[in-house]
Design a protein around this nucleic acid. Structure first.
Length: 578
RNA sequence: GCGCCCGUAGCUCAGCCGGAUAGAGCAGCGGACUUCUAAUCCGCAGGUCGCAGGUUCGAAUCCUGCCGGGCGCGCCA
């Protein structure tokens, strides 16, 4: 299509004695927003007019004339300031149905990524307890993004970074040890204020007693801390993996912060930066507008992240000499790059927004500017129940875990709803509405369209016993009976699916898939309802096998595109609603 | 104070690498069912795209400055 217009432009320019000007994808070739303007629209004349030394309308007229000569073009006209609007032969569109039936749910796959390796790191929740709903959003967005990249031809690795070092896992170990002592019948006293209070640690404490008996009961902390910590981290990661499995998510790689540090990677990273003069000792100023009373100027080892676009240099050592989280995180990203991923994507929660610039600076420094590093920030999820906000407070005990939500509304609903907003917008998740079966609920709306399509095919098999309605058979069906505007309009939407997928991948916005599916579902429901008004417009018309086959090819293609999109989202297409 | 994000219909939001008369759902009003071809559909009504400038043939979209909301801001992770 684009090629056709490029060629016609060349012809038009030749007619006026001009050499072809710019060459490239600087102009658009798309269905116009308003369908009355035609089936395909291009702004090529507006974009190229200046270079051609002509006014847009004149150039457009000449290009349109060249286009009109093409066999597939029914009509080419010029509108407005110089848009070219085209109508194509119905057969050009109908042929796409055959493509879809042949490709199945792999319709929309492409080689855009050319097999390049991409690492998508997502979830990476601290191993200190079960996942909450906010983690779930990152999990779904990351997983869908990974699937989207895979669909357009990247070699994707799904990775989880396990923060199994640092003070929070020591606190976890002490919390567990407390529960372990309780399980052993010792008088452990009140759980200290800053410890993790969760019930899950009571179970883990009992499990530790079961495995190791009394051996850590009356020892010094320095003896029991490491083994208890390892046990605790393993137990928490099992918990988290279960939560993820309930969402249908599994990672290819789990990277341990502790193992990374032990390998010497942090030392290597810092000496690398040191040798390039990117470390220095300095004193950071107190951020303005802050009134920390205990703030005092202090010399620290800093990374010159300001040399790479950050607002201030960043500390890499704590005053006790150990590394900051940022230091190990730099080493981790360097490690990912050195493992052969030229493209790195992290999916983080909103609370890490202030961390993006420094990490981008770090990756730029450590990869010599060669890594393509992007961070998706997932904003907050506001849980509500029939319009009433559900307050999330660990202390008040009204904390809702991801698992509770998944168990209540189901994995497909959670996944779909998490993708009904751009990741940077905050998201309202209403537990009651999520299971409502109406068009308020986008999950059911799309699922219902797919189920209806399957229903029509089942109906066909009953109406025409012995007839073959398989995909290859439908692809052979004569499609020329699909000549109504509503049908052709749906076909055009389906034909645009590969472009929709590519655009979503290029923008790293998996939520676009959800919106596109809602649009397709709407067009399909509208088409379906015509059959309620007029029996002759049903998909299955008992007296007309040929017509039924034509329409069922469209029905099946619609189901395949919906299934293709749901696959990216990780949602199961249903064949009946029941 | 600084950084990032958000501000579009009464409500919840799409659209944002500039494009034609700014879209959808909910809520409201009016219509279409012997329920797996009504969990749906059709129609009506609803807008200073936060405000003010700028760039452009053309701005919801890009730039600048304000206003309002959110998140974050030296050793936590």
């Amino acid at each position: 299509m684009r090629e056709l217009i490029e060629n016609s432009l060349a012809v038009a320019l030749e007619q006026v004695g001009q050499a072809p000007v710019a060459n490239g994808a600087d102009f658009s070739v798309e269905p116009p927003r308003d369908a009355r303007h035609g089936e395909v629209s291009s702004n090529v004349a507006l974009v190229r007019a200046k270079a051609a030394g002509m006014n847009p309308r004149d150039l457009a007229e000449r290009v349109a004339a060249a286009l009109a000569a093409h066999a597939d073009v029914v009509d080419a006209s010029v509108a407005g300031p110089g848009f070219i609007n085209l109508r194509l032969r119905g057969e050009v569109w109908r042929a796409r149905l055959r493509d879809i039936l042949a490709a199945g749910t792999s319709y929309g796959d492409s080689d855009l990524g050319k097999g390049n390796k991409v690492n998508v790191e997502y979830v990476s929740a601290n191993p200190t307890g079960p996942m909450h709903v906010g983690h779930g959003r990152g999990a779904v967005v990351g997983d869908a993004l990974a699937s989207l990249f895979a669909k357009v031809g990247y070699a994707v690795t799904r990775e989880y970074y396990v923060n199994d070092a640092g003070v929070q896992v020591d606190v976890l170990a002490r919390s567990l040890h407390h529960r372990y002592r309780e399980a052993a019948g010792q008088e452990a006293g009140e759980l200290p204020e800053d410890h993790y209070p969760g019930e899950y640690l009571v179970e883990a404490g009992a499990a530790l007693l079961e495995r190791d008996g009394a051996r850590w009961l009356d020892r010094a902390e320095e003896d029991w801390l490491p083994p208890v910590r390892d046990f605790a981290v393993d137990a928490m990661m099992d918990l988290i993996r279960d939560d993820l499995a309930a969402l249908g998510i599994s990672h290819d790689v789990f990277s341990s912060e502790r193992a990374l540090a032990a390998s010497g990677a942090v030392d290597d990273t810092l000496s690398d930066l040191e040798s390039r003069g990117l470390l220095h000792v300095g004193i950071l100023e107190r951020p303005k507008g802050r009134t920390d009373e205990d703030w005092e100027p202090r010399p620290q080892t800093l990374f010159r992240s300001t040399a790479f676009g950050d607002d201030t240099d960043r500390a890499i050592r704590k005053s006790d000499g150990s590394w900051t989280y940022f230091a190990t995180d730099m080493a981790y990203h360097r490690d990912k790059f050195r493992r052969g991923f030229p493209i790195l994507i992290d999916v983080w929660g909103a609370d890490h927004k202030g961390y993006v610039k420094r990490m981008q600076a770090a990756v730029a420094a450590l990869s010599g500017g060669k890594a393509d590093f992007d961070v998706l920030i997932c904003n907050l999820v506001n849980l509500s129940e029939a319009g009433r906000p559900v307050k999330m407070s660990k202390r008040a005990g009204t904390f809702v875990t991801l698992r509770e939500v998944v168990d209540r509304v189901g994995m497909d609903v959670v996944r779909f709803i998490m993708l009904t907003r751009g990741n940077e917008a905050s998201l309202d998740f209403d537990l009651a509405r999520a299971v409502e079966q109406s068009k308020d609920n986008p999950v059911f709306y799309v699922q219902y369209a797919h189920a209806r399509a399957c229903s029509a095919l089942r109906n066909a098999a009953e109406t025409f016993p012995g007839e073959d309605f398989s995909d290859p058979a439908l692809a052979e069906a004569p499609l020329d009976r699909l000549d109504e505007e509503e049908e052709l309009s749906l076909i055009r939407m389906l034909a645009g699916w590969p472009r929709t997928v590519e655009a979503a991948a290029e923008a790293a916005e998996p939520h676009r898939i959800a919106f596109a599916l809602s649009d397709i579902a709407a067009a399909f429901h509208a088409l379906w309802n015509r059959g309620n008004v007029d029996d002759d417009r049903r998909f299955v018309v008992a007296g007309d096998l040929a017509l039924s086959r034509s329409r069922l090819a469209l029905v099946r293609a619609t189901a395949l595109v919906i299934a293709s999109g749901l696959e990216v989202m990780g949602v199961n297409p249903v064949e009946e609603m029941r």
